[in-house]
């Protein structure tokens, strides 16, 4: 698999590390506990389109939001997290 880093261009998988679902949002300190539990532990884990966070650790160190299909591994888009909604 290859990701096209918006800063560095297309690079191999070995340069990146994965975090997971990019759609979860860190709740506020005052939010109900179930929001926190959902944020830390619960995932949609879809079979198909997935918005996810990758880190270009062996490159520019940017966190990237990648839209990828978990069934086909097709990568639809890669954006720096700064131009996306922050999780």
């Amino acid at each position: 698999m290859r990701l096209t880093c918006p800063h560095c261009g297309p690079r191999g998988l070995e340069e990146f590390s994965y975090r997971g679902d990019a759609t979860v949002r860190r709740p506020s300190l005052e939010a109900p506990e179930e929001d926190w539990i959902a944020y830390v532990y619960l995932r949609d884990n879809p079979c198909g389109a997935h918005k996810e966070l990758w880190y270009h650790g062996s490159g520019c160190r940017a966190w990237l939001v990648v839209e990828r299909n978990t069934l086909t591994h097709a990568v639809h888009s890669v954006n720096a997290v700064s131009v996306e909604d922050a999780p």
């Binding site: 975090r19 880190y55 650790g57 966190w63 997290v81 922050a86």
Partner: peptide, 17 residues
């Protein structure tokens, strides 16, 4: 060392840009 650096980048870029 490496995972703390990655964590800081996450916190800055994703949580508190």
């Amino acid at each position: 060392a490496a995972s703390v650096m990655q964590h800081l980048e996450f916190c800055h870029q994703c949580l508190w840009p």
